[in-house]
């Protein structure tokens, strides 16, 4: 499949998940994005469930905030000091599903490397610089996570029992690790940019490999399915058109 098709599907899913309010449709989009992440991003997709479980406290917090503070007509529970409305519960669920959908669909692009982005963007005549920036941003979060995990392992190997550290020391440690990991990655991005320049990045003329991958029958099919599904979903929710 052409890399542009995968990017288009991810953009389509994330855009639709922001526009549509129906829980059923949002659930469907989440299922598609989960399947994409599992089948297209290899190991990263396999560990997706674990990642989502780690984010569960965040999802729950967002849900509770929506339930408590969103005002609505139909009250599901009214204690005077606390009123839970139907629209609050719905809004909480919608935001959580949207968030999960965006995470899962973005995971599907983790396996795309810089060249895939170059091929995809050259097909729609976008400059190479954008391909580099997008590729870097997509890989930034997994890289950040990997480096942070590595730093924690290094600290543990020094005989530091992080769990039993005093709260103040824990904050100091996490602050030091986070800043160092961020600084390391940003510094590396500068070196990577130099490496790309040395390999003829932005040199005149298009390499022939740009033309090796063309949009095929499978890609066309995916585009048609996306257009038809968009029309059906948005047609059902005309208020959003």
């Amino acid at each position: 499949m052409h890399p542009l098709t995968l990017i288009a599907v991810v953009v389509w899913i994330t855009s639709l998940s922001l526009v549509v309010d129906s829980l059923l449709t949002l659930g469907g989009l989440l299922i598609i994005s989960v399947l994409m992440a599992i089948f297209l991003s290899g190991d990263y997709g396999q560990r997706l469930g674990h990642r989502l479980v780690k984010l569960l406290p965040l999802f729950i917090s967002v849900f509770i905030l929506q339930v408590i503070f969103r005002k609505g007509d139909v009250a599901l529970l009214d204690l005077g000091w606390l009123r839970i409305s139907r629209s609050g519960v719905l809004a909480g669920l919608q935001i959580c599903i949207r968030f999960a959908t965006i995470i899962c669909s973005a995971s599907a692009m983790v396996k795309l490397n810089y060249n895939d982005f170059r091929i995809a963007f050259s097909a729609i005549r976008l400059p190479e610089e954008i391909a580099f920036m997008v590729s870097y941003v997509i890989h930034f979060v997994p890289l950040l996570e990997e480096r942070f995990r590595q730093s924690l392992a290094t600290v543990r190997r020094r005989g530091v029992k992080i769990e039993s550290l005093h709260y103040k020391d824990k904050i100091q440690l996490y602050k030091a690790l986070t800043i160092a990991v961020l600084a390391g990655i940003l510094s590396k991005s500068g070196l990577q940019a130099i490496a790309l320049e040395l390999r003829g990045f932005r040199s005149v003329g298009k390499p022939t490999k740009y033309f090796q991958q063309r949009v095929g029958l499978k890609d066309s099919l995916v585009y048609y399915v996306m257009i038809i599904l968009s029309l059906i979903i948005l047609g059902k929710h005309q208020s959003y058109l």
Partner: peptide
């Protein structure tokens, strides 16, 4: 890179202060 944590060598060594014993 895997051996060092923190922004500077001094900060890296400072993390050893948290080791037990």
């Amino acid at each position: 890179t895997e051996n060092l944590v923190g922004i500077s060598p001094f900060e890296d060594l400072s993390i050893w202060l948290m080791a037990q014993p």
